[in-house]
Simulated scan of single mutants.
Amino acid sequence: MAKVQVNSVVVLDNASPFYESFQCKITFQSEDLEWKIIYVGYAESEEYDQGLDSLVGPVPAGRHMLVFQADAPHPGLVPGADAVGVTVVLITCTYCYCVNNEYTETELRGNPPVKPFSKLQRDILASNPRVTRFYI
């Protein structure tokens, strides 16, 4: 099974006034991960994206359901010409792994070259994912 499997996302209180909070019910199977709700204020630039809220594990292994609620976006940060019409609300899930870059040759560890990349080996530490815990 994948580390994260999203089974369903149900948008709650749809349609609602601009100033109302966003709510969605998410059912998933996973371990530690981070959820974010991002409001895209302008399609041509990330400059106007607003991170509305985030939730971080720990989440014990198994099937879970959460209602993720975030405040409405700040209208002063949305360009007036883009206030009406279609935009995007991103619900993201992030699972982080540490990556260890090492020299393949022992002598380079004490005397690294100026341009190291051709001599480096990348090791994604998949058995030890990075876990950041924030108590909610």
Rank of each mutant, 00 (worst) to 15 (best):
P116A: 13
D123R: 11
L108S: 06
E107D: 09
Y19A: 14
D82Q: 10
W35T: 00
W35D: 01
V10I: 11
A43R: 11
P79Y: 04
L90I: 07
N101W: 04
F117K: 03
I124A: 06
I91D: 00
P113S: 10
I91Q: 02
V114I: 13
N100G: 05
Y19Q: 15
I91E: 00
V11H: 07
K115F: 10
V89Q: 07
L55Y: 06
Y48N: 12
T106A: 12
C93F: 02
K36L: 07
E44A: 15
Q69I: 04
R122E: 14
V89E: 04
Q50C: 04
Q121W: 06
M1A: 14
V6H: 09
E47A: 13
L90F: 09
P73E: 03
Y19S: 15
V78R: 04
A70Q: 03
A126Q: 09
H64F: 01
P129E: 08
L12K: 15
T87S: 14
D123A: 06
Q69G: 01
M65E: 14
Y103Q: 08
Y95C: 14
E31D: 12
E102W: 00
L120C: 07
A2M: 02
P73R: 01
V78S: 02
V10Y: 01
N111D: 14
V11D: 12
S118G: 14
V84R: 05
V78T: 13
V88C: 08
Y19H: 12
Q121E: 11
